[in-house]
Design a protein around this nucleic acid. Structure first.
Lengths: 259, 259
DNA sequence: CGGTCACCATGATTTAGATCAAACCCACAT
DNA sequence: ATGTGGGTTTGATCTAAATCATGGTGACCG
């Protein structure tokens, strides 16, 4: 299903002169190491200048509110480093984190006038921000960009369905196991394994994990302790956990609990 | 949205020659009363023949398995009447219904080789089926079709996030109230109110509702009984419920419980 | 018309996870 | 060195919803 290149492209003034700022922006996109892992991959190398001018890079400290629930939907972001949490809240303060947007993921897409969700940085985050009208232009001018975005949203929806299964039907143990599994880093580059076990990336706090898994911090804490006790995971540091038995964790996550 | 009987339109002016079959298909799309409420709206009136030839209409009895989890993703469907349930399951049989696809909604979209979810008809359902390659063609040839689909998926994702909030953080009462609210039919066409209260469309069983809300059938049953007892809803028929106080239900759904 | 079956309601009891309550750990500021 | 505060762990108790159990209702059928 390779999306055929579409030649509907409106003549784009490529030979236009760039402001110095635009030139650095172009450079930014050219050397962007996550480009091929994001929606930006939908745009041809030769037309990166367009992309660069449509977006602006920002660096945000931990705990920055990027999107406020209910405010006008003006921006679209692409995460180039760090982790952002997306969430929805109830009037009394109960909160559900609906996902973590890591490197290469987008956020802020909506068809509504206002955002129906909030977004806040977990750690230091770099994003490229697109304003709404500029995103619209990219979508109509670059079919491959639009196609790429469609694919991303489709994947996002599949993940959301998986999370609904977790929230609606899994036990606390199964939820935590699923979570750790999902956040496992790719296997170490072979050769010298630093330590035994695969690393899990956990930049967020227990509160965030609890709000993501539909549990309380106490239950999350107890469950992680239990997994540690029974040697499924190790690591005393809260944000650095190692999976000792991936298969065991997989069994736990899908309810094949032997214990 | 009662699916009005197709009015037999007479001769349709055709510019090109179609096979007889294609001609009936074209007719089907031309008179399709839900077209403007679905992705098909992305295709121009003059090019409906393309759309008609890319799809096939099917009528399916209640309880038909349309999509089996894990099977090759070959089809894409557009619902033109009835209700389809989408779900994911765990090895031991626990099931989470991730959504109900009603008239105008699509199902079967994925970037993966196989479906990660199942789909089964709730009542008698009519769908238009597109095969994968044909869908791909439509997407690349008709940017507005693709855009429309992107918008649909984006909305779907927003709904999924709302459902995650429900599953992760709402009480049983709040879940049932939210569900009834979401499935309320549009307000009666003014004038003579048939009976008091707004009708709720519930073609599915208690088991389905429970699997959608992450509860057991007993809890769903008890909760509906309680709402009836306290005059928030009426209707003794299981599939025909009326909302007496929409505002009350809205308060319940968002946790502003006065009781 | 009596029997089977699918679906629903409701009561009694159990339990997984929430809530309540300390205490600990560690970075950092005074 | 000593508080101070955010984040975490662990234990004791409570409770919302699950589980277990029973009966009802109506559709369909030989």
């Amino acid at each position: 299903m390779p999306p055929a290149p579409h030649s509907r492209t409106q003549s784009i003034p490529l030979r236009r002169r760039f402001t110095p700022e635009a030139r650095t922006d172009l450079h930014r996109c050219l050397v962007c190491e996550i480009r091929e892992h994001s929606v930006c991959n939908g745009i041809d190398d030769t037309e990166l200048a367009i992309l660069a001018q449509a977006s602006k890079r920002l660096t945000l400290p931990p705990g920055t509110a990027m999107i406020e629930e209910g405010t006008p939907a003006l921006s679209f972001f692409n995460v180039t480093s760090g982790t952002v949490k997306l969430f929805k809240s109830l009037p009394d303060g109960r909160r559900q984190i609906t996902g973590f947007a890591d490197v290469g993921h987008f956020l802020g897409l909506t068809t509504a006038r206002t955002y129906s969700f909030g977004a806040e940085t977990v750690d230091t985050v770099q994003v490229c921000r697109f304003l709404r009208p500029q995103l619209e232009t990219l979508l109509t001018d670059y079919p491959q960009f639009e196609r790429r975005l469609l694919d991303e949203v489709t994947d996002e929806l599949a993940e959301a369905q998986e999370q609904m299964l977790l929230l609606g039907r899994k036990t606390a143990r199964e939820r935590v196991a699923s979570f750790l599994l999902n956040r496992m880093m790719p296997p170490a580059p072979s050769g010298q394994g630093k330590t035994e076990g695969r690393l899990v990336s956990l930049p967020m706090t227990r509160v965030d994990i609890a709000d993501y898994l539909g549990l309380t911090i106490e239950t999350v804490s107890r469950t992680i302790s239990a997994l540690r006790r029974e040697q499924t995971i190790t690591g005393t540091d809260n944000h650095g956990i190692r999976v000792l038995s991936v298969t065991r964790l997989r069994d736990l996550a899908s309810g094949q609990d032997s214990r």
